[in-house]
Design a protein around this nucleic acid. Structure first.
Length: 872
RNA sequence: GGGCGAUUAGCUCAGUUGGUUAGAGCACCUGAUUUACAUUCAGGGGGUCGUAGGUUCGAGUCCUACAUUGCCCACCA
């Protein structure tokens, strides 16, 4: 056992333990039949990711519970890894290419994918290393990547299985298209943002009666180039006569019909809708229902194509302007209104997405959703906080098919081949050379890759080896809990549940914990572009990883509003732990390492109390962790260690370090406290532990302290509370008496260590004597204060009530005021107690408590009155 | 348009079967220091718990309405 250095050097300590834990495989987990598994899979961060506060929060939460469970004796596995993040990663390398003035087409598919792999090799571990730096106790040797060999096999098998069950199909539908990324997106990947746009009212003239026209309203006038009908509600009397008539589509001069369709809302706009089946999802369905023509007027990059006549080649937004100009010239633009509406944006590049008619692959979701809904309804999977259950169910019950093909190059290529000779469509895990039907070598693989989430949804079992059957998969699956932000419920959580049932026949996890979003002090989401982000690594650098972790969690009720100062609490607490331990190690030179807190005799009150308080804290902390109430757990620990252990116990025993039993108790409480603090602040606790218990191995794998309810002593806690109360009241007069804290505390420790009324009385006299000694000084200092009196104004069964009176006049009015307050309180109480309704209906213990309270108030008042009388 | 939260001290938030005089941290004010820790210690001021009703012996907590605010979902062109 060595002495701790004067300062807690977190920089050195953080990096030392990161390395030690990893080098010694401290967090390795194996299929150990003698233990119960507890498994968490990390939400794989994007391989392009750089640690931000959201990651720091998410991973600290996971680390707390996994470290806790590990100490509790579970075979704790935290599975790490990264996600290939299709579009995001491709964008990074494309940006690099763009600097050289090149596009991906210029280098070709194979070379481009090679570039991505080398990028991944060079930078892909960044975020993993950053996670290590904040203390994440993953089993790092297992680190997976959603495109590593085994994982790619899993993705292929999943695709093939669904394909063979006809749960995957290919078809031409309206999907969300990003004209910048040049790929399809799923519904979830198109983020709706409110836009202040315009609603343009256009006139479409009738063919037979060109003077007359029908008015349609649109927010995207350029799509009119692809209109193939105008629809009205069949119940709309205004248009009844016009249904079936032919219109001339302006600018294009196409003949289009007026049709009737229930979809049309008579109340909105003019009650007539232009129908563009190739460029709007609703119109698409109307087109299908009414057998309309589908005219695509746009290229993939958002430019108008030759179907757009004179507008051919214009970008969609230029086309919008030009179309409006032309219509206005012809007098066909009736009016322009301001109109707020939601517009979809690409979640990767923020470009406005275009509803676009395109041939894509889809997963049929309804059959997959059924068991996933049931599992949550049956309580097999629980959301915390509970309110997310509804959000999940609502989405699942209205689920739509999932567009899984992406027109990018970075990802899992769709394992489907087409034969150019016989049009055969083949699905296969391994590369095909010839057509399985006509044997032609003239075959080609589908160009598209799968949505990144199509690999992520397999994460809980693919990381454990699926589709191969093995011991580990059996042992660790289903996993225990999943930690994520609410944004990811649809993208990932819901889909993992579906995949779990589909491929494993079981839930993927039993608990889902949804944590808040990290925001700046003004409530804005932290983001690079806003420039309001606080870099967690900067905090690690300035305050230490423990400070980062502790501070984040203590603020983590719902959404977190973070500013830099908020991290001081963690830094200060780490410092406190360090210094308190240092104090104990400096003074407790003669400790018995096998000292057992439960086998002590003739304990003084403060020691009984601190042991009791430790165990009641231990009980509550364990309970809070199990119920995912982390900030509550931290508050309990903080309060116990700082306010209880340091501010009271260590102060009280200050002059009693010679007492071996006191030494042992202080040491033991510190040692046990380190264990319960460890999941929250692993570095500082590990370092202190290493100084005292090198022989026992690292703290990370020590058993969690055993709760001994016999050591919870309610009476001692109550008595000590009285002592604290009285000490506090004496402290109020202390500064006026000029008694140093040391004298005061000496007196108090002596007074309460024997826990008897007589001793208390004796020591009250000691206190009085001290005050009398000070009296002389006081006269010098406060010349006018002459009448100094100390009255023992009363005692109760457990402790003595002391009041110091310095300036009689001043103190008298103070006491009179107090008497007044007490009397008011007493009056309220006795009124309550005389209310029959209360005594009859309220539970007995409440009534009893209130009676006791009233009594004690009455006694207090009597004594105070006596004290005032004595002063006269 | 639908759904879900939030509203408690100057600020950030606890307050979980309704039950003592509503708590903490930060900030502010007063005071302490031969010290394990100035990243410290002691003390203090500051709240009609968003508003209005209701249920109850008793409401920050339950119910209703309203106000303010945040988020999610959504195919009104």
């Amino acid at each position: 056992m060595s002495e701790l250095s004067k300062r807690f050097d977190f920089k050195e300590v953080d990096s030392k333990w990161c390395k030690y834990w990893e080098d010694n495989d401290v967090f390795e987990a194996k299929a150990n039949k003698d233990k119960i598994p507890y498994t968490i899979v990390i939400p794989p961060p994007n391989v392009t990711g750089i640690l931000h506060m959201g990651h720091a929060l998410n991973n600290t939460l996971q680390d707390i519970i996994i470290r806790y469970k590990r100490m509790k004796g579970f075979e704790a596995l935290w599975m790490p890894g990264t996600d290939h993040a299709g579009i995001a990663t491709q964008n990074v390398v494309e940006r690099k290419l763009a600097k050289e003035g090149k596009g991906r087409e210029d280098v070709g598919r194979d070379a481009f994918v090679d570039m991505l792999w080398s990028w991944k090799k060079e930078y892909g571990d960044t975020i993993i290393n950053q996670l290590k730096n904040i203390g994440a106790s993953c089993d790092w040797k297992r680190t997976r990547f959603t495109m590593d060999d085994g994982y790619s096999e899993a993705v292929k098998q999943a695709f093939i299985k669904l394909y063979k069950k006809d749960l995957i199909y290919r078809g031409t539908y309206i999907i969300n298209w990003c004209p910048r990324c040049l790929t399809a997106l799923s519904d979830e990947e198109a983020e709706h943002q409110d836009h202040q746009g315009h609603l343009y009212h256009l006139k479409y003239p009738l063919k037979d009666d060109p003077e007359n026209y029908i008015i349609v309203a649109t927010t995207r006038p350029e799509t009119m180039l692809g209109d193939t009908a105008v629809a009205v509600n069949p119940k709309d009397k205004r248009y009844k006569k016009l249904v079936g008539k032919t219109l001339i589509l302006p600018l294009i001069n196409r003949e289009i019909k007026i049709i009737a369709d229930d979809f049309v809302d008579m109340e909105f706009g003019s009650g007539a809708v232009k129908v563009t089946p190739a460029h709007d999802p609703n119109d698409y369905h109307m087109g299908k229902r009414n057998n309309l023509e589908f005219i695509n007027v746009m290229h993939e990059n958002g430019k108008i194509n030759k179907n757009g006549g004179e507008f051919d080649g214009l970008d969609r937004f230029d086309a919008r302007k030009k179309v409006l100009e032309s219509l206005e010239k012809q007098g066909l633009l009736l009016k322009t209104e301001d109109h707020a509406h939601a517009v979809g944006h690409c979640y990767r590049c923020d470009t406005i997405v275009e509803p676009y008619l395109s041939k894509q692959w889809f997963v049929r979701m309804a059959p997959l959703a059924a068991p996933a809904v049931k599992a949550v309804k049956d309580g097999k999977i629980k959301f915390t906080p509970d309110r997310w259950t509804k959000v999940y169910l609502n989405w699942m019950e209205n689920i739509r098919d999932w567009c899984i093909s992406r027109q990018i190059w970075w990802g899992h290529r769709i394992p489907v081949w087409y034969c150019d000779d016989c049009n055969n469509e083949m699905v296969a895990a391994d590369e095909l050379k010839t057509c399985t039907k006509c044997n032609s070598a003239n075959i080609r693989q589908d160009e598209d890759v799968l949505d990144t989430w199509f690999s992520s949804w397999l994460w809980p079992f693919a990381t454990l080896g699926w589709p191969k059957e093995n011991e580990e998969l059996k042992y660790f699956y289903p996993t225990s809990s999943l930690f994520t932000a609410s944004e990811i419920i649809f993208f990932w959580v819901a889909r993992m549940i579906m995949a779990g049932f589909e491929f494993m026949g079981d839930i993927p996890f039993s608990d889902v914990y949804i944590h808040g979003t990290v925001r700046d002090s003004k409530g804005r989401k932290m983001s690079k572009s806003l420039g309001n982000a606080i870099d967690p690594l900067e905090i690690v650098n300035e305050y230490g990883a423990d400070a980062l972790r502790f501070s984040l969690i203590v603020n983590s009720g719902q959404d977190l509003f973070i500013s830099k100062e908020k991290f001081e609490i963690g830094r200060n607490f780490a410092n406190k732990i360090w210094n308190a331990s240092r104090l104990i190690l400096m003074n407790a030179k003669d400790i018995d390492k096998n000292f057992d807190l439960s086998k002590t005799e003739n304990l003084d009150l403060p020691s009984k109390w601190i042991i009791s308080r430790f165990h009641s804290t231990l009980e509550k902390v364990s309970d809070s962790i199990e119920r995912y109430r982390y900030s509550e757990a931290e508050n309990l620990i903080y309060e116990f260690f700082w306010s209880t252990f340091c501010d009271w116990y260590l102060e009280i025993i200050k002059d009693n370090w010679g007492n071996k039993q006191i030494q042992n108790i202080a040491y033991k409480i510190m040692e046990e406290s380190l264990k319960i603090i460890h999941p929250f602040m692993p570095f500082v606790t590990e370092e202190i532990w290493d100084n005292i218990n090198k022989d026992k191995g690292v703290l990370s794998i020590q058993p969690w302290p055993e709760l001994d309810k016999n050591l919870i002593n309610k009476k001692a806690e109550k008595n000590m509370l009285l002592v604290i109360e009285h000490t506090t009241s004496i402290r109020n007069t202390r500064s006026q008496w000029n008694i140093s804290p040391k004298e005061e505390l000496t007196c108090h420790f002596a007074a309460h260590s024997k826990d008897s009324l007589n001793t208390l009385k004796e020591n009250a006299e000691v206190l009085i004597n001290i005050a009398k000694l000070k009296d002389v000084k006081m006269d010098e200092k406060l010349q006018q204060t002459k009448n100094v009196a100390i009255n023992v104004i009363g005692d109760s069964e457990n402790a003595i009530l002391l009041e110091g009176i310095v300036d009689i006049g001043k103190e008298k009015s103070k006491i009179l005021k107090q008497i007044d307050e007490h009397k008011k309180l007493g009056a309220g109480l006795s009124k309550r107690l005389s209310n029959k309704n209360f005594t009859d209906k309220a539970p007995e213990d409440v009534v009893k408590k209130e009676k006791e309270r009233l009594e004690s108030i009455e006694i207090k008042v009597t004594k105070m009155e006596a004290a005032v009388a004595a002063l006269n």
